[in-house]
Design a protein around this nucleic acid. Sequence first.
DNA 1: GGTATATATCACCAAAGCGCGATATAGTAA
DNA 2: TTACTATATCGCGCTTTGGTGATATATACC
Lengths: 138, 138
Amino acid sequence: MDLFTQQAKAIADRTRIRMLKLLENGELCVCEIISVLKLGQSTASKHLGILKRAGLVESRKNGTWAYYRLPEGADSRCRGYLEFLAANLSDDEQIAGDRKILGQVKKKGCSVAPGPDDRAAAIRLPMRPVKARQPKGA
Amino acid sequence: MDLFTQQAKAIADRTRIRMLKLLENGELCVCEIISVLKLGQSTASKHLGILKRAGLVESRKNGTWAYYRLPEGADSRCRGYLEFLAANLSDDEQIAGDRKILGQVKKKGCSVAPGPDDRAAAIRLPMRPVKARQPKGA
DNA sequence: GGTATATATCACCAAAGCGCGATATAGTAA
DNA sequence: TTACTATATCGCGCTTTGGTGATATATACC
């Protein structure tokens, strides 16, 4: 499949659009993405894999943590859709809400115990350890 | 589903991308689109319906003929993807070939008997009548 | 060492999507 | 009228896709 169509398919999913819009706020750890978008772990990993294979995100590993970001290189073939996306959905309430939640998650750290008002997330997410874990290298 | 995602899904198909790029050459009759892209009749109709419901094409009827075109209004919500598409795939060989075939189909008329070198199309397309039919109103 | 965490991958199922033939509808041609 | 054409829609089979639980691996914490 040609890259243009592959990227079109990668964007043709609401969850992946939310991921890309969230990553416009900067590089994020997978567990942060999971916390903000309230996704299952395998679901998030699969979607991120689709975005990565389409060249729409890059990733790096640091210990057990994986960080995803929008590509930084000047490869115009990978930037087209991302620039288009950046120019759109500024009025989307859900995406604005995601960005707001990201701010909260960033303050609390990565593994966040969901509040009592979010029972769906409480089922999916592990409890926050007393002290947040940190990768060795950082 | 929100319009942005719906349009993304509508574009996430190679055949529909080819249709939209073909319509950049101006309004076309369905039978012309079928001839150029060598699609089954019901397949083409279904794809055009998806594009229409997503607001990416408009249509009008004249007798039995149906004509599709890119939207002419200034509704920016419908133009975004189309402008993005117009700015891309200029180097796509298949789409360039489609445009070339369109020129040939335009010369011969709508219902074209496929040449002996295109047997797949010969199965799908009716033979060209001795005199090409024309809608009453035009 | 042992236990828990972060992530990727696999297997599975339900849902959606695509192509195609058949049918329905409406118009043209004679 | 009858025959043919253009298009839309429906029904079917097949493939793809999205979500989820289970598993594997590597790492962090103790």
